[in-house]
Computed example of a mutant assay.
Amino acid sequence: MQKTVLDRVEPVAEGVVSLVLRGADGPLAPWEPGAHVDLSLPNWLTRQYSLCGDPADRGSYRVAVRHDRLSRGGSEYVHLFLRAGRTLDVSLPRNNFPLLSAPEYLFVAGGIGITPLLPMLAAAGDSARLVYVGRSEATMPFAAELKAEYGDRVRLHAGGRPDFAALAAELGPDALVYCCGPASMLDAAEAAFPAHRLHLERFRPVVKEFGPDVPFEAHCVRSGRTVPVAAEESLLDALNHAGFRIPSGCREGVCGSCEIGVVGGEPEHRDDIGAPDGRMYCCVSRASSRLDVDL
């Protein structure tokens, strides 16, 4: 964890504030566009937010938080109680949504989904375009800032969604599409853009169906211990109860904070990130037989 001081809280749209977090002990850890951090709030909640500032600025991080009317206590606390001067713990950045090299980019943002795309647009160069969708310009964070900086390379669609099929037809043969926003918009993007070009980041996991959960064992290779995992508990909870302090954030398979190594057995991946070979996200993923894990 990194110690930060909340330097300022600024409204950037209706129901959205920007938080600028200054490193309390010197430079903060480096990051690349698409990265996010875990922010530990004073009400004992941890929430994940995309970094939307300048990666070259090692002195501070910027995130933006929308006040969710169905808040489970995170965004509500930020908007109603969090004030400048507060010391906050912030994780090292993680990046499940990296910007790959391409000659041309189309970025598609919906509402607060603009946050991971802001530094991408700055890094991508003159061949990048942004299509930004929201209920109204007043509810779209950083809209005025984007238009002022990028002009015609930014298209705002307030109150309606653009024709994604038409946007797909305009793309060059090697263009990549990066999209972040509400589930309905991402589903429409998946239907319109070729899968090999499209990169998505979701706020919530896609609903999937799996077979019934069954008990299994996790053998912790480095410690020599074997941890039983009951059918009704997650691997994350079983490991934590056994004394292995595995960090966790979303507990939905979208943030990546609970990643562990797998050295034997076949995990059943249930995350929305796409775990690399030899890794798994133990908050949602499990197994039907013994796993050997790197703990």
Rank of each mutant, 00 (worst) to 15 (best):
V78Q: 02
K208D: 00
L291H: 04
A166M: 01
A189S: 14
A165H: 12
A231S: 14
T46W: 12
D38N: 08
A231L: 13
V229C: 09
L118W: 09
C180I: 14
E268V: 14
A138V: 12
E145Y: 05
D294P: 01
V12S: 08
V20A: 10
K3Y: 15
G249D: 08
Y77D: 01
V12P: 03
D163E: 02
A168D: 01
E209F: 15
F216Y: 14
A13Q: 03
H36A: 13
V133W: 05
I260F: 12
R72H: 07
L51T: 05
Q48F: 03
R161H: 12
G278R: 13
D237G: 08
D126E: 14
P173Y: 04
P98H: 04
L70C: 06
D68Q: 11
S288E: 06
E268Y: 10
L239R: 14
V206P: 10
L41E: 01
I273C: 03
E10I: 15
R245W: 10
V16E: 00
G85E: 00
A287W: 09
R86D: 05
F244V: 05
V16T: 13
F216N: 07
M120K: 05
L239T: 11
P30C: 02
D163I: 06
A218E: 02
A122H: 10
D68G: 09
L291I: 06
E232V: 13
A138I: 12
P276M: 14
E137W: 05
G15A: 08
G15S: 10
R225Q: 14
G15M: 09
S71R: 05
G111M: 14
G265H: 14
A275N: 05
C283Y: 00
F107T: 02
C258L: 11
R153S: 09
A128V: 03
A218W: 04
D277R: 13
V214T: 15
L80Q: 12
L186M: 15
G111L: 13
A192Y: 13
N43P: 07
G34E: 00
D57L: 11
I112C: 00
V262I: 15
G134R: 00
D68Y: 14
E170K: 10
G53Q: 04
A287C: 08
D237F: 11
D237K: 08
R135S: 07
V63A: 09
N43Y: 06
G172H: 02
F164V: 01
P276D: 11
G278Q: 11
V263D: 09
G74N: 03
D54W: 02
S248L: 06
F203V: 12
A165N: 06
E14C: 09
R62M: 10
D272R: 15
V131F: 03
C52T: 04
Q2P: 05
D272G: 11
C255S: 11
V90P: 04
A238E: 05
P33C: 04
E233F: 12
A287N: 04
G211M: 02
G134F: 01
L236T: 10
T139L: 12
F107H: 04
E217Y: 07
G151S: 06
G151D: 10
T139A: 15
G253F: 15
V16G: 03
P182F: 14
G211C: 10
E14H: 13
H269N: 09
